[in-house]
């Protein structure tokens, strides 16, 4: 009997090992998601099934908020990629003390977000360090409006999310077979041809992971736009928190969350396949 139990246990080992994680995902992810979908179809006043919540949010103001979040997320992704790629490339191919460099590059990731944002305020404010220095140097007479702009939101978001881009890029480039560079060169390719036809395509899995890792959370980001963009810069994240925390309108909040989640999912899938096109 014990023998049979033992052999059964050994045979089903993968199941037992995966079970806690699956349970975790069901309780903390799938179940809440189903609750959310359910709530989004319930009229909060009557308690009956209804499309009301979705009708309610189908307006231009909501559309603008979603587009703004998409815009922030896309720009953040774009800048983290074009800044992160050369950094990851340098660390993987040339840097000596790779571990230390990576530690310093991922430092923002270790620091509390609020602290980070306030650190940027210190630099970007009207009385901040940059304006102070520029005035002292006589380059400007009036302080520049640096904080509370779209630019400052993108800047700080890029800064916060860049570790998520560098890490997957680094892990792919670090495993890159240097002989491929020589092979490409041997076959007559210049450095830029090699970059275009070999290095970037081979690091594509890293690029894709990095883009998804940055794009998805930056779409829902609300702390940075809320603090850096001033009160008028409503985003998907801040609107969701408004519905659930301030107005306690769970039904409409759920509908909005589901809608923006679907848009995020579709955009992410679209980007994922667009990247595959650069393969050859």
């Amino acid at each position: 009997m014990i023998e049979r139990l033992k052999s059964c246990f050994l045979k089903e080992m993968p199941f037992f090992l995966a079970a806690p994680a699956v349970l975790w995902a069901i309780i903390l992810f799938l179940f809440p998601l189903l609750c959310l979908i359910f709530t989004s179809f319930i009229d909060q006043d009557t308690g009956l099934f209804s499309w009301y919540n979705y009708h309610h949010i189908a307006n231009i103001t909501i559309a603008i908020i979603i587009i703004r979040s998409l815009f922030y997320a896309l720009l953040t992704t774009f800048f983290t990629l074009i800044i992160g790629y050369p950094i990851a490339y340098y660390v993987a191919f040339y840097a000596r003390a790779k571990e230390y460099m990576l530690f310093f590059l991922t430092l923002p990731f270790w620091t509390n977000l609020i602290v980070l944002v306030y650190a940027w305020f210190f630099l970007l404010e009207r009385e901040g360090l940059i304006n102070f220095l520029l005035t002292k140097l006589g380059l400007i007479t009036e302080p520049l409006q640096l904080a509370y702009t779209t630019g400052s939101v993108i800047l700080v978001m890029t800064y916060c999310y860049i570790p998520f881009m560098i890490m997957p890029l680094y892990s792919v480039l670090n495993k890159f077979n240097m002989r491929l560079l020589e092979a490409s060169c041997d076959l007559g390719a210049t450095y830029f041809q090699t970059l275009r036809h070999v290095i970037i395509p081979v690091s594509l899995p890293g690029i894709r992971t990095g883009i998804i890792l940055v794009f998805v959370p930056s779409f829902g980001e609300f702390i940075v736009p809320a603090l850096m963009g001033g009160a008028k810069q409503l985003t998907v994240g801040s609107l969701i928190s408004y519905y659930f925390v301030v107005s306690k309108n769970y039904a409409i909040g759920s509908a909005f969350t589901i809608l923006s989640g679907l848009i995020l999912l579709l955009t992410a899938i679209l980007i994922y396949f667009l990247i595959t096109l650069i393969k050859k």
């Binding site: 002989r179 020589e182 092979a183 041997d186 007559g188 390719a189 081979v202 594509l204 050859k280």
Partner: peptide, 21 residues
Amino acid sequence: VPAHKRKINTVFQQYALFPHM
């Protein structure tokens, strides 16, 4: 003359084939 301009080609020890092609 840089390597990419030499009319010489190499068969590498570990082949160095392009894995994405």
